[in-house]
Write a protein that binds this DNA or RNA. Structure first.
Lengths: 190, 190
DNA sequence: TTCGCCATGTAATGTGTTACATGATTGT
DNA sequence: ACAATCATGTAACACATTACATGGCGAA
């Protein structure tokens, strides 16, 4: 059974515990959205499909007069999720407008290069702060999930510093230092 | 004029010099694909649209008996590209299956967490090596474009080390060190 | 009573990949 | 003669966002 992108998050989050569609969305919005986003337009139809396929099961559990369906994994769903989880990761896609602008700066507006690098650095600081906020709300996170969060924070701070340094060099017209290729560096160490 | 995602790369690469659709694709495949991919199914229809909109202009320039259309920016195209380039970057999207698997490990297969971290580290090394390859072929890169390439290399190596360290800690069951939040650290420095 | 949140869902639209079809040229 | 690469293009499908529609609940 091939799982769609959205099926992977849905089954994954349901493995943490039963949830409604709305709760899946809110949970994802402060966790996986940074590396695996999902919108309502994907979530609700996918819940239907997964339910039809027997991988999840919905139970009516209204809160007050407010309609609400809570889903949980079936045995088949847990199995499908496990199979996916075992396999090596394949999807790895990025779309980063800041990098594209910097990449093109020479051909479009060379004088903007340093500025773009500065902006990139600042955006990374903002993202890191946002993630620190998430961290402060997170109680008793599991080691894997917590690792991902720490990674996000530390990487964004590293990026901010890297581009801050590089912005200064670009302002002075310094070319980035060219480091010896990996294999040679390994030989040096030996 | 709102530019589509693919329009941004196309106009950008054409700003570097006139190119055919095929050349745009090959060029993108060893440069922007890491942060802004494009496929034939997007490129050719978009070339048509941009041409109809007057942002680019195609000239027939066959090589031998082989049909070939080379496109270049019009004044309007250069202007549209400039407007986009001036504005602050907004698009920033990631889809990273490794992080999703690690995030979910606790609920799906806790014993796999360290393994996933190891795999992530190894993938990053491969990406860094791939980028070093690109670097060795790149002659006289412009500072902005070269900055993006150096960034890719150094970030991937940083990531590889980070996950390598973390994999070891996960194997031993050590929680990742919790660093003081940003604001407090700034106070410390003062 | 009004606002924000909880809750579900769909229609319209846009984006993007994959696979296929076609055919010339170059190097082995 | 064959494979690889150059070159263009489309059809089918999959994926995703946005905006909208609907309505209850709780607090100010």
């Amino acid at each position: 059974m091939e799982l769609s992108a959205t099926a992977k998050v849905i089954l994954g989050l349901l493995a943490m515990g039963p949830r409604s569609g709305y709760e899946i969305k809110s949970f994802a919005d402060e966790s996986t959205k940074y590396f695996w986003a999902a919108s309502y337009g994907q979530i609700y139809p996918e819940l239907r499909r997964l339910s039809d396929a027997g991988l999840i099961e919905g139970t009516d559990s209204p809160r007050g007069g407010r309609q609400r369906t809570v889903y949980r994994l079936t045995k088949a769903g847990r199995h499908a999720l496990g199979e996916w989880h075992e396999a090596p990761a394949e999807v790895f896609e990025h779309r980063d407008e800041g990098l594209l602008k910097l990449f093109l700066a020479g051909a479009v507006a060379p004088e903007r290069a340093a500025e773009i690098a500065r902006e990139y650095s600042e955006l990374s600081i903002e993202t890191a702060d946002e993630l620190r906020d998430v961290e402060s709300h997170a109680e008793g996170k599991d080691p894997g999930a917590y690792t991902v969060l720490r990674f996000g924070i530390e990487m964004n701070e590293w990026i901010a510093e890297w581009f801050d340094r590089r912005a200064a060099e670009l302002e002075e017209g310094v070319p980035p230092s060219r480091v010896a290729p990996r294999r040679e560096r390994e030989r040096e160490r030996a």
